[in-house]
Design a protein around this nucleic acid. Structure first.
Length: 418
RNA sequence: GUGAGCGUAGCUCAGCUGGUUAGAGCACCGGUCUGUGGAACCGGGGGUCAUGGGUUCAAGUCCCAUCGCUCACCCCA
C-alpha cells in the first residue's frame, strides 16, 4: 500500500477543523491590526534562504529540500516564511507603503528532519511581519498580537519568553568571548557543543546537555546582555516597558537563542508545557537588515511564526475542542423507491441556502432517523406514499420529537424561519 | 543524521515456554422491527499477522535484514 511520504500527513476531519480555525483566528487578530495577507510560492530559488536565513544555520545546511530543475536553477521547498515574504516585499517595491508594512501568511513549510511529536517534514505555519520601522513599540505590538492569537484560541497554559540577541557586532564580540572562556573547558563539553564552539558558540548556552550547563556555570560565563551596545540595551528595555504597559506577561530568558541567523535584538518564543520535546509553539524576533542580505535596501523588520501543528497539540492538551464540522439541517428519507428522486429534487431545491442531505435508497423510518442523527441533522424529512398523494413532507424534529406534515413548497421558508 | 521502543481487522488491542481453521471490543452492513429514535439480541463482511529470508516436523510467536511508525538527541514551528 502506498502511504504518505515520511513526515507528511493527510489533514482532514477534526485535525483540519483545528487548522482552519487557527488560520481564521489569525486572520481576524492580524487584520484588525492592519496586516494584509500575502501568499508567496512554496518553491523559491535557493539563495533566498541561503542568503536570508544564513549559510551556517542548520536549516540551510542540512534541512532544506533542494533540487535542480530542468533549467539548471537551484530550487528549494521553503523551510520558513520570512525570507520569501521579504523577497516578495522587495520585488513589489512595498517599501513605498506607509511604514510599518504589516503582512501575514500561512501555509506549508518543509524541513528534512527526523519526524517526532510536534515535528513534521511538511508542517504549517502562520506568520506575521512588520517591515520598515525599528521602533520598540512595533516589537511590542508584534508580540502582543502573537499573545492575542493564543488567547483568541482559548489557550491558557503558554509562556512567553523574551530575550535579546543583540546586534551582529555585539554577537560577534560575545561569540569571541565565549570561545575564549570555553576553550579551556573544551574537553568537558559534549560532542555537539565542541562543534558549536567552532561554528556558533552562542548555541552552547541553550544546550540540553547537563554537562554543558555545568561547564557554563563553572566557567562563570557572563550573559550576552553585558556585551550589548547602549542602543541595543535601550531597545530591549523599551520593548519590556511597552509589554508591561500592554499587560502582556513574559518571562525573561537571557539565554534565548534563535536558530535563524537573521535575528537581531528582540527575540521571543511561546512555549507550552504539554508538547514534549518540541515545546515552542512559535517564535520570532527582529530582523533588521534582512532585506539587504537579499540584495535590497537595508530595512528594519520584526515578525514571528507559529507552528499550526503544535498549536493543535496545545489545544488538545488543554482540552479545547475543534469547531464542529459541517452537518445538515435536514436529512431526507425516501420511504419507497419512487421517493428517492423526489427527495433529491427537494434537496437540490433547498440548497445551497440550506444544508440538506438524503438517503439514496428507500429506508424504514427508524433507520432513517438513526442515519440522520449520525450525520448530526436536526430534522429528518420523510417522503412516502401518503406524502406524495398530499404533496407534503413529514418533518420530525429530532430534539423535541415533534413531527408535522408540511406542503413541500413551504418547507424551505419553514426551515429558514427557525 | 544518531539512539531506543514498537509493527496482528478501518480503530484500540488480546494471542502463554512455537502446536492444528488468528480472536475480542468499537465501527460498518443486515435481521429481530413492512411508516418512526441512540438500547438489546442474532447474524454478516472484512486479515498477504509490515516485507523478505532463516531456524524448526510446525512460526503471529524464535533469529537476521529491510521498510515503516513512535519517542528522544540534534534542530526548530
Amino acid at each position: 500500500m502506498i502511504k504518505a511520504v515520511r513526515g507528511t500527513r493527510d489533514l482532514f476531519g477534526e485535525e483540519l477543523g483545528y487548522k482552519r480555525w487557527i488560520e481564521a483566528a489569525a486572520g481576524q487578530v492580524l487584520e484588525a491590526a492592519g496586516a494584509q495577507e500575502i501568499e508567496t510560492p512554496i518553491l523559491e530559488e535557493a539563495p533566498v534562504f541561503e542568503k536570508g536565513v544564513g549559510p551556517t544555520s542548520d536549516v540551510v545546511q542540512k534541512e532544506m529540500y533542494a533540487f535542480t530543475d530542468r533549467g539548471g536553477r537551484r530550487l528549494v521547498l521553503r523551510p520558513e516564511g520570512t525570507a520569501g515574504v521579504m523577497r516578495a516585499f522587495l520585488e513589489h517595491g512595498m517599501k513605498v507603503r506607509p511604514a510599518p508594512v504589516k503582512l501575514y501568511y500561512r501555509g506549508p513549510m518543509f524541513r528534512a528532519e527526523r519526524p517526532q511529536k510536534g515535528r513534521y517534514r511538511q508542517f504549517y505555519q502562520v506568520g506575521y511581519e512588520a517591515v520598515g520601522l525599528s521602533e520598540p513599540a512595533v516589537d511590542a505590538e508584534a508580540i502582543a498580537l502573537l499573545v492575542d492569537l493564543m488567547k483568541a484560541l482559548g489557550l491558557q497554559r503558554f509562556v512567553l519568553k523574551l530575550g535579546t540577541v543583540g546586534d551582529p557586532e555585539d554577537r560577534r564580540r560575545y561569540n569571541a568571548y565565549l570561545r575564549e572562556v570555553l576553550l579551556p573547558h573544551r574537553e568537558a563539553l559534549s560532542e555537539d557543543s565542541r562543534v558549536r564552539l567552532e561554528r556558533n558558540p552562542l548555541r552552547i548556552l541553550d544546550s540540553k546537555d547537563r554537562g554543558d550547563q555545568e561547564v557554563l556555570a563553572r566557567a562563570g560565563v557572563r550573559p550576552l546582555f553585558d556585551f550589548l551596545s547602549e542602543a541595543a540595551k535601550a531597545h530591549y528595555r523599551a520593548v519590556k516597558g511597552a509589554l508591561k504597559a500592554l499587560g502582556v506577561a513574559f518571562e525573561e530568558d537571557p539565554r534565548l537563542v534563535r536558530g535563524l541567523d537573521y535575528y537581531v535584538r528582540t527575540a521571543f518564543e511561546i512555549h507550552h508545557p504539554d508538547l514534549g520535546a518540541q515545546a515552542a509553539l512559535g517564535g520570532g524576533g527582529r530582523y533588521d537588515g534582512l532585506t539587504a542580505l537579499l540584495g535590497g535596501p537595508s530595512l528594519p523588520g520584526v515578525g514571528w511564526a507559529v507552528g499550526t501543528d503544535r498549536v493543535i497539540l496545545a489545544l488538545k492538551a488543554e482540552a479545547i475542542p475543534a469547531p464542529p464540522g459541517p452537518a445538515p439541517l435536514l436529512y431526507l428519507v425516501p420511504l419507497d423507491a419512487e421517493a428517492v428522486v423526489e427527495a433529491l429534487v427537494l434537496a437540490e431545491s433547498l440548497r445551497p441556502r440550506l444544508p440538506v442531505e438524503l438517503a439514496y435508497t428507500p429506508r424504514k423510518p427508524g433507520k432513517g432517523i438513526r442515519e440522520a442523527e449520525r450525520r448530526g441533522a436536526r430534522y429528518v424529512g420523510f417522503l412516502g406514499e401518503g406524502e406524495r398523494a398530499r404533496g407534503t413532507i413529514s418533518v420530525k424534529d429530532l430534539v423535541t420529537g415533534e413531527q408535522q406534515e408540511l406542503p413541500r413548497e413551504k418547507l424551505g421558508s419553514w426551515l429558514e424561519a427557525l
